[in-house]
């Protein structure tokens, strides 16, 4: 199956079909999620109304890590099998992941001010998340720093694979160190400890963000494939003239 969809033409045909579907799923899930998040769900007994920030903060943080792992995996595929499409997926994911990381940091800051009394604290979770943001920026800058596109792609791929070590650090930082940041309450071995009334909007927003990611990914990969075609045609033209 992997080889089947590695063909750019099949990939394009598949994505053009999936593109409207992911858009509709994203709109519906985020719309419904916002209604539950802002109206239907109760305030937390400890955090009162500010708990509503969770519904945009936590999915953004999940997506930030998911996007990074996606970049690292497709970079590994690109390095081992030299597949152009894997590179394009990694490149297209980077700005989306960077945006989600920025949102996780910014909304976390807006949540931290009323709850902890400070916009920012230097604890393990926040610091490792900030490093993730810098890794995204470094990846994007390195990708574009070479005159030869394929060199940039390979260098950035290696960087992304090295940086993947940061992902378990982010995940477990709240367990390994005593931090202000609260530990995970949804992804746990013995089930989530969050009340269903809060789990519904959280899950809806998470599904919505995921669908949004795929929609954006399909748009951006199509654009990158077009740009690749343009580049090839220009090279052919200069060769024939």
């Amino acid at each position: 199956m992997f080889n089947y969809f590695a063909n750019p033409f099949r990939f394009l045909r598949l994505t053009s079909k999936l593109q409207p579907i992911t858009m509709l799923v994203a709109l519906a899930a985020i719309g419904l999620g916002l209604f539950y998040a802002l109206v239907e769900s109760p305030p937390d007994y400890q955090q009162s109304e500010t708990v509503r920030i969770m519904y945009v903060h936590v999915p953004a943080a999940w997506m930030a890590m998911f996007c990074y792992v996606t970049i690292a995996c497709s970079s590994a595929v690109a390095l081992i099998w030299r597949h152009m499409l894997a590179n394009i997926i990694a490149k297209s994911t980077a700005p989306i992941g960077a945006s989600f990381t920025f949102l996780a940091l910014a909304t976390g800051s807006l949540w931290g001010k009323p709850m902890w009394g400070a916009w920012w604290v230097w604890d393990a979770r926040l610091t490792s998340m900030l490093i993730l943001f810098f890794l995204y920026l470094g990846y994007i800058v390195l990708y574009n720093a070479f005159d030869d596109q394929s060199r940039g792609a390979r260098a950035a791929a290696i960087l992304s694979i090295v940086g993947v070590i940061n992902i378990p650090i982010i995940k477990f930082s709240v367990d390994w160190w005593n931090t202000l940041h609260q530990p995970a309450s949804v992804i746990k071995i013995n089930g989530p400890t969050v009340h269903p009334s809060m789990l519904t909007p959280l899950m809806l927003m998470a599904v919505g963000y995921m669908a949004l990611y795929f929609w954006l990914l399909f748009i951006r990969t199509r654009a990158e494939l077009n740009i690749n075609k343009v580049r090839k045609m220009l090279i052919q033209q200069t060769e024939t003239h």
């Binding site: 720093a145 070479f146 960087l159």
Partner: peptide, 15 residues
């Protein structure tokens, strides 16, 4: 990683 890159000095510090 930065061998052969443009503006490699600044790039190195960012990385």
């Amino acid at each position: 990683l930065i061998l052969g890159a443009r503006r490699s000095g600044v790039l190195l510090s960012v990385l």
